[in-house]
Amino acid sequence: METNNPHKKSFKLEDTSKRETFSVPDGYFDSLPTIIQAKAIESTKPSFVFSKGLVLKLALPALLLVFIVGYVGYKFQQSSPITDNNIELMLAEISTEEMVEYLDQTDLSSEDFLELVSFEGEQIDDFSVELKNISDEELEILIGDFNLQKLENI
């Protein structure tokens, strides 16, 4: 090969010996077949892998259900917010007979009523006035509607 420097020795590949440049750890090729064989057999075993596609496939119906339930719940809450006015309206639609029948069938004690209702001084007075004005016949009917056994415990 021609070079610009006449003193430079040209390198010829054919003059170079093909000696191996690299080496391996001792006994490397003795143990390699066993390692490869184990790895090869392992690679053909069926394995359950969570791929992105599989995760999406499994999660999508659940996410969709959560979204639908959430949306319906949100819409329902928006259309009928529970307020004091609503409760009064709902109760007004129930007849007295239905209420009495419900209370008769329900195992509610006087303590349950007292826990739920709080009276103030003036309201108790009004209540007393109403009771004072009640006739004996009306009182009989009223007492008959109550469970006397429970009243004994007050």
Partner: peptide
């Protein structure tokens, strides 16, 4: 492989991969 990737560790990984593919 070794002459291409130079490092013994990389060659070791690749030679195993090659034979696993042969098996598969």
């Amino acid at each position: 492989i070794r002459k291409m990737v130079i490092s013994h560790e990389d060659s070791d990984d690749l030679v195993q991969e090659v034979f696993v593919k042969v098996w598969k």
